[in-house]
Amino acid sequence: MKHWWWKSLAIGLLLFASIAALWTPLSPALVHVEPDRIAPGPMEVLVTGYNSNFSNAGSSISFFENDGQRFCPERTEVVDDRHLRLFVQVPGGLRSSMTDLQVGQLRYPGAFYTQELGEGIADRNCEEGHVQDGVFTFPNRSILYESIRNLHFHVPMWFTMIALMAISMWKSTQVLGNTSLDRDRDALAAVHVGLLFCALGLMTGALWARATWGAFWTSDVKLNGAAVTALIYLAYLVLRGSVPDAHKRARLAAIYNIFAFMLLVMFLFVVPRLNAVDSLHPGNGGNSGFSDLDLDNRLRIIFYPAVLGWILLGLWMYDLRRRTSRLNELLEQ
């Protein structure tokens, strides 16, 4: 166990990242208003928050904002931490058809569709809510909601898979020099573990896609890339299976592996840029990436350790796999 330190690092990083990814609460947000359209006159609005703390005095102070002009509710009734009833006299003559709502520090842009527009109103001097408590939270964003935690599981799987496939390709280039059966065994072990991470990435991705896009599988460049990766490496296993002679198998598999990895890199990193408009993934095709959400690096603090931890775990599994297959071969002889 001379390499014990990186294994403990893997365990530590994975424990930290997984617990933090699941434990960290989502930042509070306003999720629903009832009714969602306003017209001049007295209105009663029920506001629903998520992870909010309305019973705290400072965080239930609210105002409406229409095109930079504010007006305040006449009376606020706190139902509970998540529900707030606002009684407001909506002034006539608002300019914009979208009225924002702010409760405490929480903003709900375009909360109300506004009817009977006019030339503007006199700005009222509304009290602003206090700053919320500084708990460590994840960004809360519509559509994503709690599923944002999956970022720390789904994405590292693909990083790990790419790392393992790259190791496999590197070992395959060594096979070509001297047809080393040891290097061939290493390449195969890396592909086995890489395929496991591919399967995990597909599963976490399918669940995430169901939660956010509404379907387990969609026609998306990155999904096509994942499917092709799986097919290529399953074909690699079939190729190995169809050659009985060990040295010939090692050489053929190595050639296919190098060729396949190069085309895979093209497919994963070049083709998506050709038709980026098609992708549903964050950061592609005009979708905002997680970096836009993650203004204060809260996701990154957990994401980078998660990536490193999963890659180290992948390497550890690869190491175990190649050692057990070597022992199995020795036992058979």
Partner: peptide, 29 residues
Amino acid sequence: IASRAGNGAGLMAILGFPLVLPLLLAVMR
């Protein structure tokens, strides 16, 4: 590769399909 593996057309389809896909998608588009 397939002919060296001694398993012609069948193996070639399995090995070839995923590898021509990037190209196929580009030219189809």
